[in-house]
């Protein structure tokens, strides 16, 4: 994320400013990290209205517990961790599984689960491919979607994603590997059929 502070010194300066009650400091923190927060929660929850409310809840928790932040990790990872736990609790309350125990239980790939409302007549092959890919990503379980987004879009290292989700680095790698392979294979199969 280019619009976020990257060094721990900058993180600590911003945190100190908020804790000392500097005018506008917390507003700046929210502005810097609202995009990351949205990515995590939207990928987990997949519902715009709920995501808005949970983003607000996340930053209120960040404000309340910021004194507990230790400069050992990047502020970005710490805030992502808060967002992840808020979204996870929301899914648990709604009894939505975080990761399907057996993703292939129904024998369907993510692309097979995509509804066929995509207008193949008017779309170019590239657009068609991208459209189906995005729909397939949406069909992945919340945990896999979130890990893919944190790694590819927010460019968080695997170690940081492990810290955010509370999972082992090996588990994160395994989720990344299997999700990407599954999506690539499904896309190849789909495009082969389409061609």
């Amino acid at each position: 994320m280019n619009d976020s502070p990257t060094s721990h010194a900058e993180d600590q300066a911003l945190v100190n400013a908020v804790l000392n009650g500097s005018p506008g400091a917390f507003e700046r923190l929210v502005r810097d990290y609202q995009k990351l927060c949205w990515h995590v929660i939207q990928r987990m929850v997949g519902h715009v209205e709920d995501t808005r409310e949970l983003c607000q809840e996340t930053f209120l928790r960040v404000h309340q517990y910021l004194h507990q932040y230790r400069n050992e990790s990047a502020l970005k990872s710490w805030i992502a961790q808060v967002a992840y736990s808020v979204a996870k609790r929301h899914l648990e309350r709604k009894r939505i599984p975080l990761a399907e125990p057996d993703a292939d239980a129904d024998g369907l790939s993510p692309l097979d689960r995509v509804s066929d409302d995509f207008d193949i007549e008017t779309a170019s092959i590239d657009n068609q491919m991208a459209g189906h890919l995005h729909a397939a990503i949406e069909c992945l379980p919340p945990l896999q979607r979130t890990i893919l987004t944190l790694y590819h879009l927010d460019e968080l290292p695997i170690g940081d994603i492990a810290q955010v989700t509370g999972l082992a680095e090996g588990t994160i790698k395994s989720h990344l590997f299997r999700s990407r392979k599954q999506l690539r294979d499904a896309l190849n199969e789909h495009m082969g059929v389409a061609a």
Binding site: R31, T51, Q56, L133, L148, L153
Partner: peptide, 27 residues
């Protein structure tokens, strides 16, 4: 193609004054 799709920005549908409102409420 997959990696490019995964890196495409996600639209952040928060109000323009979200940061200010959250900061006021937090205070």
């Amino acid at each position: 193609a997959l990696v490019r799709a995964l890196r495409e920005p996600i639209e952040v549908q928060l109000p323009a004054d979200f940061a200010r409102r959250v900061a006021l409420r937090a205070d």
